[in-house]
């Protein structure tokens, strides 16, 4: 058993040190003889055991004695731990590839491949004071109705609902990925819901509501213009939004009439309530066929969400 364990350990350590690579080779030879039911002639186990005990005895003779007496048992224990941790690492790599985080979809736990946690970062709804902090498990579309939000291709079977904020960096990072995804998959329904997390962006909810109401076709161009604008230009700046609306082909008089109406105010409030009911705690939160993807994920993650592999 020791040979198997040593092979795993030294193979990993061998990545960093040539002397460990030599030990890994010896361990491999030992494993090979074991699996072919021949006696191990390299004395690898005894050699490594003695080296280990030699190191240990300088620190504690009692510990060294314990290790010597229970070497086989400890080898088994470490072997099992190695197998478990190897599976765990493999799962981490798998999760990172599919979900952008080693700990699974939307987890904010530490991931060595994304040490800064950028793939799970959101612009938080920090104006809220929760008794219990929200978790990704509570984010759902079940209680919300997104029919009043701008939607493209509503009849399509596959659906993406993008909840984002024009002034939020993470939303801005995710939006091009989703646009690319839609370009590659035109037969997908896409709903955009602006949720003003950052100060200075609330007014844009009215613009969104009214531009879509005035002309749904022109809305997507307007939406793109807002995302391609600088945050400084957009910050609490209706006149800038006006300019962009004109660029998109809207009539400002009609648009202002809508924006300033009481009905719009009520409708936008209703929309915000529908978003809040999803339980989101930051933007972007993107629902792909009902599954929330919180934070800006790599493109492959969204793609996998839209076209899952056969088993997963």
């Amino acid at each position: 058993m020791f040979c198997f364990l040593a092979l795993i350990v030294f193979a990993i350590m061998g990545i960093f040190s040539a002397s460990n690579r030599e030990l890994a080779k010896e361990a491999l030879a030992c494993v090979f003889t074991r699996v072919t039911f021949r006696p191990c002639r390299t004395n690898f186990k005894d050699k490594t055991k003695a080296m280990l005990l030699g190191k240990l005895v300088t620190r504690s003779a009692v510990v060294a004695k314990f290790v010597n007496k229970n070497f086989e048992l400890l080898s088994w224990a470490f072997f099992i731990l190695s197998v478990v941790s190897t599976i765990w690492v493999a799962k981490g790599v798998y999760d990172y590839y599919l979900y952008g985080n080693c700990n699974g979809l939307n987890s904010s736990g530490f991931c060595v491949f994304d040490p800064k946690g950028l793939n799970s970062s959101v612009s938080s709804l920090n104006e809220k004071c929760y008794v219990k902090p929200p978790t990704e498990a509570n984010v759902t579309l079940k209680n919300s109705n997104f029919s009043s939000f701008p939607v493209k291709n509503p009849q399509a079977k596959k659906k993406i609902i993008f909840i984002g904020c024009y002034l939020c960096d993470y939303t801005r990072a995710a939006y091009p990925q989703i646009k690319q995804l839609l370009k590659q998959n035109p037969d997908v329904s896409f709903t955009f819901a602006h949720f003003p997390v950052k100060a200075g962006s609330s007014y844009l909810s009215n613009y969104d509501y009214c531009t879509y109401k005035e002309d749904p076709k022109k809305f997507w161009n307007f939406n793109d213009l807002l995302f391609s604008s600088s945050k400084a230009d957009l910050y609490d700046n209706p006149s800038y939004a006006d300019k962009e609306a004109v660029k998109a082909g809207y009539n400002l008089d009609q648009l202002h009439a809508c924006i300033n109406s009481a009905a719009t105010k009520t409708a936008v409030e209703a929309q915000q309530n529908e978003i809040i009911k999803t339980g989101i705690y930051g933007t972007p939160t993107i629902f792909i066929d009902g599954t929330p993807y919180i934070g800006p994920k790599p493109y492959r993650v969204y793609e996998h969400g839209l076209k899952p592999w056969f088993l997963f």
Binding site: D46, A50, M51, L53, G54, K55, V57, T58
Partner: peptide
């Protein structure tokens, strides 16, 4: 007690 183990341990530890 294996003689090689004694030798290896003496080398490693002392």
């Amino acid at each position: 007690i294996d003689s090689h183990q004694i030798a290896l341990m003496l080398s490693e530890s002392a």
